[in-house]
Amino acid sequence: MVKAIQVGLGHWGFSWTKEVIPNVPTVEMVGYVDSNPEALARVQAELGIAESKCFLSLDAALQAVEPDLAICTLRTEAHYPVVKQCLELGLNVIVEKPFASTIAQAKELVALARERGRVLMVSQNYRFQPAPIAAAELVGAGKFGPVNLVSIDFRRHAPSQGYRYWDMPDPLLADMSIHHFDLMRMVLGDEPKRVSCRTWNPVGSPFNFHPIGVATLEFEKGTIVSYRGSWMSSGPVTPWAGEWTMDCSEGEIIWSSRDHFMGVAGPDRLALRERDQALVPTDLAPIELADRRGTLGAIAKVIETGTVPARFSSGADNLHSLALVQATILSASRGGDWVEIAEIMQ
């Protein structure tokens, strides 16, 4: 068992406390931290968390308990200082995405984790679903040869679907597309080279910043990704991971993932089409711990065994996904000019 504390019990943090952490049997919770007494009172009243396990500060918690892992589920701007403090105190850390606000901050955290010999993981939960795992394995095995073109569509109508972050800067690229960017890297087993992106805010939108965007991404092995995302779409709703068509030399891999919407859930889907043949649906192997439970279970296993599995979203790995976010935002600010990933990483 890995002993853990959770830092951050707000809206999303409470979801972790209620829905994720209790369903990962290898994690034993020894403390909960939030500077807001009302947040602590809520987990005690609604989830039955013992008052003795609740603390108003990380320092107070570590005077009372000895955790191996900090589960950091705070607002984005608090990620860097809290993760830094946790690493300096000798804790392993799993943190929600994006794990820092800038590449410089992210690099500092990665270096600190390496220096202290601790595991730093970013909870890229979309990696822990059957369809993207299967797609990554098919690409890695060269099922249909090299991947030439990938087309991805993400469509949601935020005003009618309970979205509430109207003031968030870059609500598409920073809040949503980071999932899709990270999946591109994982599924292709490749790194991005440069990007071009345009974003906009349509008439009548409640967003203060751009909720729609299109991007072209060029990867090191030559694959081009055409990406289209919208929080203001009137078209058919896509699964959260989007709809993917991967055009390879000898056929297509077509898939979607995280297909749940307003109380209705469906399975991941993947189908294969050899060139000039019919589309053939493929059975997907179930995974033991999916989604956020998968990320938490993965870091617990790394802490227990010292072995880092394939497709593990370490801080060092996630630098490249964060760089894609920063690059697309910069490209959009330049009117769609190409931005080299090397420029961002520097």
Score class of each variant (00 low, 15 high):
residue 89 L to F: 11
residue 64 A to M: 07
residue 24 V to G: 14
residue 159 P to R: 08
residue 343 E to R: 06
residue 223 T to P: 07
residue 180 H to K: 04
residue 74 L to N: 07
residue 111 A to R: 14
residue 143 K to Y: 09
residue 94 I to N: 04
residue 142 G to S: 09
residue 179 H to R: 08
residue 275 R to K: 14
residue 149 L to H: 07
residue 32 Y to P: 07
residue 93 V to P: 13
residue 324 L to D: 04
residue 169 P to D: 01
residue 168 M to C: 08
residue 306 G to M: 10
residue 147 V to P: 10
residue 155 R to N: 13
residue 115 E to Q: 13
residue 75 R to I: 12
residue 64 A to Q: 03
residue 125 N to T: 14
residue 60 A to Y: 14
residue 138 L to W: 09
residue 209 F to N: 02
residue 251 G to H: 08
residue 215 A to Q: 07
residue 319 L to T: 04
residue 114 R to H: 15
residue 64 A to H: 03
residue 104 A to W: 10
residue 97 K to L: 07
residue 91 L to M: 01
residue 287 I to C: 11
residue 200 W to P: 02
residue 336 G to M: 01
residue 8 G to R: 04
residue 82 V to T: 14
residue 170 D to E: 04
residue 125 N to G: 05
residue 88 E to S: 12
residue 73 T to H: 05
residue 251 G to F: 02
residue 91 L to R: 00
residue 71 I to Y: 00
residue 100 A to D: 15
residue 294 G to R: 11
residue 39 A to L: 08
residue 67 P to D: 00
residue 18 K to I: 03
residue 113 A to M: 13
residue 254 I to G: 05
residue 14 F to V: 09
residue 311 R to F: 15
residue 313 S to H: 01
residue 141 A to V: 03
residue 143 K to E: 06
residue 336 G to W: 11
residue 264 V to I: 10
residue 167 D to M: 02
residue 341 I to A: 13
residue 221 K to I: 02
residue 156 R to I: 06
residue 42 R to M: 13
residue 263 G to M: 13
